[in-house]
Design a protein around this nucleic acid. Structure first.
Lengths: 253, 253
DNA sequence: CGGCTATTTGAGTCTAGTCAAAGCCTGTGG
DNA sequence: CCACAGGCTTTGACTAGACTCAAATAGCCG
């Protein structure tokens, strides 16, 4: 409280230019998500401008930060932690449309209002961007718009794969498909070889796969009894037979 | 046949510059899709350049024009007719991810290879664009890229709505949801008030809604017996009670 | 009219859902 | 350190909604 103030003494403006060029870019340069997701497509110079319109925030586990139907004012870029994106029916049925983790961009599925809700399932660190501001940045940095189009295209591919899963796969095929994707994602990142940490509950998994908690549990047990996976006490899952998992998942490509 | 030739007499080249500026823009200007979809975002001047990279084609009913897994070389813009977009499992199960009609843009759900297949369910007139060429156009006409991002965003919203349908709705809710969307789309376009023409078969409908042909037929009969819709001999469907249809569909917004 | 396909309807089966209970893990407080 | 409360997960028994198999019906095109 007694330390150096970030307020500009002359104007009293918390967002004076001097801060933009020194403090904020440094925040971005040292950000844990500097080289993943949206920011990876920018050079350090361009990052200044993105920082200008973004603001780092933390969302505690269990707290929502987007509500379906609300005016869509922001985009979000996750730096750390995991969030679930979902849609609800009036009677309480829920469909989780995706899980967003480090580097993922959130908010494209919106017109004037959000088409989905979002809630942190772990503590989440994210950057919040004003939609209007970000659109204004497009003109100056078309690379960002290009990147968003790529992100949207990729999300469309994922969404169509999920439609195939929800419309045509059996319970065990759905779970195997999910584990395979999660397994590949983990394999891409450095660290442990094949032990997966699933941050979501069985209930989240059920809402994602279009099943009930009980069916998810039974499918997990079935895969375990077949020796395809091992389930630890802390919910960690190890893939013992990736090839068989892929076979059960009915993966095409 | 005896009229003025489109060939340039001096060069014999069918694609001489003189033709680009006169004949092709005329094709576009008179196109049935001039004021819908992608082309609506362009002024007549800009249309010249789009025409330069596009090529009109006709796909006969029942013929495929995109195959999942093939190298993604083109985008498509439908001028007339309807196509189904789908993904298949090795054992023949199929999920239709969407129906594309006049003005709809196809091809965003692709990285280096198409993530879906497409087949005409009516005779389809479309414009085919080379992906590389179109990307080159972005630099010159950012409005096109902006438009594509909007299209992608809208498709994401639709896709998430479809996930909710496939994962959490009952058979009759799925059919009612489909009819409601189709009804609203028809209401937006001029012409008959509430009589819907469904160009797809019951099989296509089943593959779109994640059901079987029999279940789709039974759900239609149920809605008919409740007096919500009327089904004509030629597959035409009239919505008699839109409010009840929406209620059954569990529409949120 | 006759063959073909698409659709509707019926009867029985099965996968996943519902309801219920037991087990397990975590965190808290004595 | 242990007991207990609470939530999450697993497992079991039964039900229900959608699927499968089968047959009848209705359009459609030559």
């Amino acid at each position: 409280m007694g330390g150096p103030s970030m307020l500009d003494h002359r104007t009293g403006n918390r967002r004076a230019p001097i801060n933009l060029r020194t403090v904020i870019p440094d925040l971005c340069a040292k950000c844990e998500a500097r080289h993943i997701g949206l920011c990876d497509s920018l050079c350090d110079e361009d990052l200044h401008f993105l920082a200008n319109v973004g603001r780092q925030t933390t969302i505690a586990k269990g707290h929502g930060f987007v509500t379906e139907g609300d005016p869509a004012r922001h985009f979000f870029n996750i730096n750390r932690g995991t969030a679930k994106l979902y849609k609800d029916l009036p009677d309480g049925r829920r469909q989780i449309t995706g899980f967003a983790g480090s580097g993922d961009f959130i908010g494209l599925a919106a017109d004037t209002r959000y088409a989905f809700s979002a809630e942190a399932i772990e503590d989440v660190h994210l950057c919040r961007f004003d939609r209007t501001d970000l659109r204004a940045v497009f003109g100056r940095f078309p690379v960002i718009e290009r990147r968003l189009l790529d992100v949207a295209s990729h999300e469309l591919i994922i969404a169509q794969e999920q439609m195939l899963l929800l419309g045509r796969k059996t319970a065990i095929e759905r779970l195997a498909s999910f584990l395979e994707v999660w397994h590949q994602r983990a394999a891409a990142s450095p660290g442990q070889t094949q032990r997966l940490t699933l941050p979501m509950t069985r209930g989240d998994l059920a809402d994602y796969l279009g099943l009930t908690i009980e069916t998810v549990s039974r499918a997990l047990s079935a895969l375990r009894k077949q020796g395809v996976i091992a389930v630890a006490a802390d919910h960690g899952v190890s893939v013992l037979q990736p090839a068989r998992l892929a076979g059960i998942a009915q993966t095409v490509a």
